[in-house]
C-alpha cells in the first residue's frame, strides 16, 4: 500500500454523467491488480472529510485511472480537477480478481457504473488469451458504459438499447454461446443485480467473482465500517475493504 500525491494527467467525460480521471502514480500503477481499489482524498479541506473509494479502472504504464459518476460533493470536486492538479491517493487496496484459472471462456457482467473495474480486467484477461463475453446492463441507453470493454451484449430495461430486459435475460439469451463449456464469471453492479446473478448461478459449478461496494472511511481495515456476511465466518463479518472487494459470490451473503 502506498500513499501517493498523484498528478492529474487527464479528466474527461466519457458518457452522460460518467467521468474518467487519470493520474500519474508509478508506485501504485506498478503493483495494482484488476479489482483492487484506491481511496482518494479529493481536496485538502475537511469537507468532504472522508476519502472516496474507487475501483481501479485501467492502468497505462505509470498512469492509473478511475471511472465515476457525479453523485455528491466529493465526485463533483473530482470532476472539476484540471491537468496538473494533485490528488492524494491510497492504494492499491483490497484484493482483486483471481487471474489464474483454467477456464478458457469468461463472462463479464456489468450493471451501470459496475463497468468501472472491467477495462483493466479485460486487458489482463486478453493478455492471458482468455475469451471474453461482456454483458452490459442498465435502465436505459444512458446507463450503458462501453469504455474499455470488448465483445459486448447490451441490455436495457426500457429497451432503448440492445435486448429489452436485464442481465439475466441477456445471460439466458446468449446461453447457446456458453452451453456445455466451462466458463468463469466476473461481475460488478447494483446489489439487486448481484443477488439475481447469485441466484442464477446457484445450482451449477460456475465460479462467479463479484466486486462489491460499501460506504467506508479508511479503506484498509481500521474503521470496520464495511462489513459483509461471509459463509466461512458466521461469528464475524468480513470487511469489504480488506477481505474484498472481490469475493467468490458463493461465499458472501448479500
Amino acid at each position: 500500500m502506498y500513499q501517493a500525491l498523484a498528478c492529474v494527467t487527464d479528466n474527461k467525460k466519457i458518457a452522460e454523467n460518467i467521468h474518467l480521471i487519470e493520474f500519474e502514480a508509478p508506485s501504485i500503477a506498478n503493483v495494482i491488480a484488476p479489482g483492487q481499489f484506491l481511496n482518494l482524498r479529493v481536496n485538502d479541506n475537511l469537507f468532504p472529510l472522508l476519502r472516496r473509494p474507487f475501483s481501479i479502472c485501467d492502468v497505462n504504464n505509470d498512469r492509473i485511472s478511475v471511472m465515476f459518476n457525479v453523485m455528491g460533493e466529493g465526485t463533483k470536486i473530482l470532476s472539476q480537477k484540471k491537468l496538473n492538479d494533485y490528488v492524494d491517493i491510497l492504494g492499491p487496496l483490497g484484493n482483486g480478481f483471481n487471474l489464474t484459472f483454467n477456464e478458457k471462456k469468461t463472462v463479464i457482467i456489468s450493471g451501470g457504473l459496475g463497468a468501472a473495474p472491467f477495462p483493466y480486467l479485460t486487458k489482463e484477461l486478453l493478455n492471458r488469451d482468455k475469451e471474453i463475453i461482456t454483458i452490459v446492463g442498465g435502465r436505459s441507453s444512458q446507463d450503458i458504459i462501453k469504455h474499455g470493454l470488448t465483445n459486448l451484449f447490451i441490455t436495457t430495461e426500457d429497451g432503448s438499447e440492445g435486448l429489452k430486459g436485464n442481465v439475466i435475460d441477456c445471460l439466458k439469451d446468449i446461453n447457446n454461446l456458453l452451453f456445455e463449456t466451462q466458463y468463469r464469471v466476473f461481475t460488478c453492479g447494483p446489489n439487486g443485480m448481484i443477488k439475481a446473478i447469485k441466484k442464477y448461478f446457484a445450482d451449477n459449478k460456475i465460479v462467479v467473482e463479484a466486486s462489491v461496494e460499501s460506504a467506508m472511511a479508511c479503506g484498509f481495515g481500521i474503521c470496520q465500517g464495511c462489513p459483509i456476511e461471509h459463509v466461512q465466518s458466521e461469528d464475524t463479518y468480513k470487511l469489504i475493504c480488506k477481505d474484498g472487494p472481490v469475493f467468490n459470490l458463493n461465499d458472501i451473503i448479500i
Binding site: P48, S214, C223
Partner: peptide, 19 residues
C-alpha cells in the same frame, strides 16, 4: 460480531459510526 451494515455515514466535517 458488531452491528449489521450500514455502519458509517459521512456528515458535514464529521462521520457517524455504529460499529
Amino acid at each position: 460480531k458488531g452491528n449489521a451494515p450500514q455502519r458509517i455515514v459521512e456528515t458535514p466535517t464529521g462521520m457517524l459510526n455504529a460499529i
